[in-house]
């Protein structure tokens, strides 16, 4: 496949085997700058494995993941983040023991100070800029009123929004979302979709792993369909929706 213009993320010919099991075969996909790229597929299709390969949690058996001209394969999670890739997990990963405001300030420090800095002679209270930035972010996700509260006490939907705020404050070039609405009520799902649409307006590139077709078709510019570790279809949401192969593999023939 030829490399298109302004491709930010290129998953190049990735294979991943677990023993004899081919979890991923011949995966080649390109994500363009500013676009929302959804990866869908039935359970066990290899979606989460693919995301873990992209983020460096799992090394691919062969092939490479290239972000903005830099090979991510073999890099540590913090190095990948410092390059501008942030990740939202399937189960929200937040700092449950810290306050909601501190949860959002921490990633802002990572962006400003890098992966390691002995910054022990300033008081957090005097970091006005970071604090204001974090408060603006919490305003955006609707958690500002509870900034002093314990993050661990939030509901699952609110934890997800907090985690999203933690990623967004870093202004990443690429945001990876692993089933951002899994386990959410319809109401929370809709507010999350609205929030993601708002980010989209800011021109951030996103890769979404998703189960919920409602979410996919509300947000995605491009859709890649995985089944049994292979790409079986790719294209715009409408193309994919009408593709008989997808309907066969995904829903056993039912219409999407």
């Amino acid at each position: 496949m030829l490399t298109r213009e302004n491709v930010v993320l290129h998953v190049a010919d990735v294979h991943k085997n677990f023993g004899g099991l081919h979890a991923l075969s011949d995966i080649d996909l390109q994500v363009e700058e500013g676009k929302t790229h959804a990866i869908i597929g039935p359970n066990g299709a290899g979606k989460s494995t693919l995301l873990n390969v992209i983020i460096g949690r799992l090394p691919p058996s062969s092939g490479a993941v290239v972000f903005d001209g830099i090979v991510l394969t073999g890099k540590k999670p913090h190095e990948i983040n410092q390059l501008g890739v942030a990740r939202v997990f399937q189960t929200p990963e937040i700092f449950a023991d810290l306050s909601i405001l501190q949860n959002v300030m921490t990633p802002a420090f990572a962006r400003r100070d890098g992966a390691f800095k002995i910054n022990m002679f300033r008081a957090v209270d005097n970091e006005k800029e970071i604090r204001q930035e974090a408060e603006a972010m919490l305003e955006d996700v609707g958690l500002i009123d509870r900034r002093e509260g314990h993050a661990g006490a939030l509901s699952r939907g609110d934890k997800r929004r907090l985690e999203l705020a933690m990623c967004l404050i870093q202004k990443p070039r690429l945001l990876l979302l692993d089933e951002p609405t899994a386990g959410m009520s319809r109401h929370d799902t809709n507010t999350t979709i609205e929030l993601l649409k708002k980010i989209k307006a800011r021109g951030m590139t996103k890769v979404i792993i998703e189960h919920d077709m409602h979410v996919v078709f509300s947000l995605a510019d491009r859709v890649t369909v995985l089944a049994q570790g292979r790409i079986i279809a790719a294209g715009s949401p409408d193309e994919v929706r009408g593709n008989p192969v997808v309907q066969e593999a995904y829903l056993g023939g039912a219409h999407l």
């Binding site: 999670p77 913090h78 410092q82 937040i94 700092f95 023991d97 810290l98 990572a110 890098g114």
Partner: peptide
């Protein structure tokens, strides 16, 4: 609190 999150946050 969460070392995993710290790593994925760039620390």
């Amino acid at each position: 609190s969460n070392q995993n999150r710290m790593n994925y946050t760039g620390f």
